[in-house]
Nucleic acid binder design. Sequence first.
DNA 1: GCGCTCTACTAGCGCGCTCTAGGCGAGTAC
DNA 2: GTACTCGCCTAGAGCGCGCTAGTAGAGCGC
Lengths: 344, 344
Amino acid sequence: MDVSGKQRPTMADVAEKAGVSRALVSIVFRDQPGASQETRERVLRVADEIGYRPDNAARLLARGRSRTLGVMFTAHHTFHADLLEGIYGEAERLGYDVLLSATAPGRGESKAVESLLGHRCEAVILLGTDAAAADLDALGRRTVAVAVGRRVPGARLDSVHSAESKGIRQAMDHLVELGHHRIVHIDGGRGPGSAERRRAYRAAMRRAGLESELRVIPGDHTELSGIEAGRLLLAERDSGGRLPTAVLAGNDRCAMGLLLALTRAGVEVPRDMSVVGYDDSHLSHLMPIGLTTVRQDAVLMAEHAVRFAVERLDDEELEPREAVLEPKLVVRGTSGPAPEAAAG
Amino acid sequence: MDVSGKQRPTMADVAEKAGVSRALVSIVFRDQPGASQETRERVLRVADEIGYRPDNAARLLARGRSRTLGVMFTAHHTFHADLLEGIYGEAERLGYDVLLSATAPGRGESKAVESLLGHRCEAVILLGTDAAAADLDALGRRTVAVAVGRRVPGARLDSVHSAESKGIRQAMDHLVELGHHRIVHIDGGRGPGSAERRRAYRAAMRRAGLESELRVIPGDHTELSGIEAGRLLLAERDSGGRLPTAVLAGNDRCAMGLLLALTRAGVEVPRDMSVVGYDDSHLSHLMPIGLTTVRQDAVLMAEHAVRFAVERLDDEELEPREAVLEPKLVVRGTSGPAPEAAAG
DNA sequence: GCGCTCTACTAGCGCGCTCTAGGCGAGTAC
DNA sequence: GTACTCGCCTAGAGCGCGCTAGTAGAGCGC
């Protein structure tokens, strides 16, 4: 009866077995008016019996709309994982399905996006893209796109990011107030938001009259870059230099790596050095004394991104919009008074 | 000309503009024989001009097969991120597309799987599922499914996992050889592989004549559980107890959390305590002195999983198979001689 | 001339669904 | 009676593609 291979049952099978037309089955499954309660129940029962499930591909095709959002993310970024949770929630609320596509070594952003578009996503949400602005502009013209965590001035797409400069300014004010002078920044290379953070760091150093101490160590938003920066600083100390009293990391992952390198080498945080991260990803809460970091509300960002996408789907003519969320410094245990200040 | 909304161009548009039939365009895009080189180039050029891209939904529908694998994973698991990379690679090699669906708070495994199936994935690969064996069996009967990182004896699906007991045995042998007696295991609750690891730990302790020291602290494969276990141990020490000399963590994330808790509290690893992880995820390489861990080759596991899925798609009648990969202890910096042994 | 093969191409059905247009019977109004 | 509505249901076109069957034309042998 049923053993004839794993042939998916179709609407026609349900219709036949329930003694109604295909159209009626369709109505029932779309939960639309036009069928009696009795028939509805019978159809659903039969469908369940023969294991029928609507075929999305056919559905999309027939409907013309897929009500599916594509999300590009990077597998190893914990902050992206935080964002994903928010995206799933908001998308479900708005009646959209979500498809994921990861970037990974050997699988660049364009491949990931192509895959999504090929699966008929109506819009793509890019988490932390580092594509050229021109490419993003082109993408935005071809389809509905939203960039998260990154400003893309002039490009034809919506973006959601936090006011990087404000976040950095808060962090820097915090450190300066604690008496820090030698404040080093490990940056995020061409990662999303890095340019703004770097700029804000420089500005803050100047404003505090610390231009002479200004120093940016190149990094890339991974634990490894934090570890390497840590090693670099420790090596400098060992060859007679002085450690900075505070480090402003490019993000939490980087801060995490740095902390590991430091604690391993016996540098106590925050007694000997303060460390501030950026993101407030899952990691930051986890640490025993907590990472002082600049909070970007992942859920809020995610919700904005989804809403932008959906609103633009409803009205293609919308001008590109930009949501700039207020970041907020969260002081936890990794920042404290500067050693000099404490010593005298 | 082109401004008429964001209407996706179809094959017919390309055909018309190139002055050929739809079928020919189809041939060109499927890279099939039956078109002259000249025509091929013209069609591709035209397609590029008007921004045509094949519509997957229609494609699947017409073809009957989607050649798409669905992967369920958990957003915050770094080991899953490692697996994903391998999956993408192997799937591409075999000509399959990959669709991702994450589990997250508020989005259980069944939801994630339904989403994949709804998008016409031919097979689903479950990374670290903790679903009941009966559910997995049902899933395996309904579609082609592969469970990664978990044994599912008796269920109608393929599985790929490592020989947990061997891995644990190697780790335990290593610790015992180093003179450790008080070896505690933080387990992974009902997480994949946990039961086997727990059992193997117990067996190893017994074999080493250390039943009296046997102790399992409940955990759940997250950093947090490592931190909490760390706090617990430290609290016990502070109220007069003794720290274990070694901890066998449920996975790397847990080991990571534990290390953070320990180093924060001034417990030096491996001088005061040895820590061994499980997975050899990205994290483990990153740490300055490196985490001693049991290596599960993510890429290899991923490749097996993809191949199992594809092979079963080609031959539905295959008996359920199980790939058991040899794990391998990787000794890095977090394990060393037991304190007592070193002291005397 | 015929039949044959080979290459380059096309017509048109069908995948499983949505959705518009409409049918049918019963009720309600006049 | 006609005219209209309303609730429940169906016929059938079409979504964008893949694919089978077939055609047109060139070349070649006899």
